[in-house]
Amino acid sequence: MKAFSFERAIDAAQAAKRAFEMPGSKFIAGGTNLLDLMKHEIEVPPHLIDVTHIGLDEITATDDGGLRIGALVSNTALGADERIRRDYPVLSRALFAGASSQLRNKASTGGNLLQRTRCPYFFDPKMPCNKREPGAGCAALDEGADTRQLGVIGTSDHCIATHPSDMAVALRVLDAEVETIDPEGRTRRLTLDEFYLLPDDTPEVENALSPGEIITAVVLPAPVGGTQRYFKVRDRASYAFALVSVALIEQENGEGRVALGGVAPRPWRRDDADAELANGATAVMAKLLDGARPTPDNAYKLVLAERTLAALLAKE
């Protein structure tokens, strides 16, 4: 871990301003991903801005019947919130499917969105990785690499990493938006597809945040009802990243929404795939995974995604 200076921000606007003034600085909230990466010198910020005292730790009702989740609300508090459990159960389920109690107690909503891939080559600073070091190459693309956990769609010739968040998959299926404030004090809202950028030839750029811009909240639209479920498939029964996860909202009229985790650089959803829901898992995946480019070691994810959705749709 490289040395850094440290300050405590008093509010989001000031934090954004300070971050802009201090190039390379990082916000730290829960720290559960950032410190992990800093110990490996995958992240080397010269300056940290502690945002744990800027408020933003409440969940409040919005005018249109939705909820505004402060960026500092912990994963535990979010998953356990009665309104979330009642009206957005897929989000609660996704949160509790992730990490451990210890990590969820510390991890923040904003930080969860910003967590970085678990690709083993990203995590090993001695391996070439375009995400860590643009232009260095990608060890995961070499024949013989360990790609069992890596992405099958939305990837590029420069990076096949996945986004590891469970929460984000549920937020995507709920059409949540990310609210930010920039150093000029301007706020904006982004859908998750606007927020997360695909790697293409710049895998180091993972999201649309501009320098200094900070996430202040995640906004949930009014509840959509339906049966909401999150099915996370992993090798061990707990405390593991998803091989594949499926967030599903089913309405009584057969309509619904599907998002996938563990397969792509961002939570993966397509409107045309949602439209196939009444036609079953195979039809949905034909759209949702159209254009997939798996490796021999992770092609199983295509089958697994389909079978996982089938398991959710099966009435048994």
Binding site: I28, G30, T32, D50
Partner: peptide, 21 residues
Amino acid sequence: GACTVFIDGQRVNACLTLAVM
């Protein structure tokens, strides 16, 4: 989880938080 401690009553991994915070 070997480093689990309580901060303000909640269990956390002490290895992933800075003392200065």
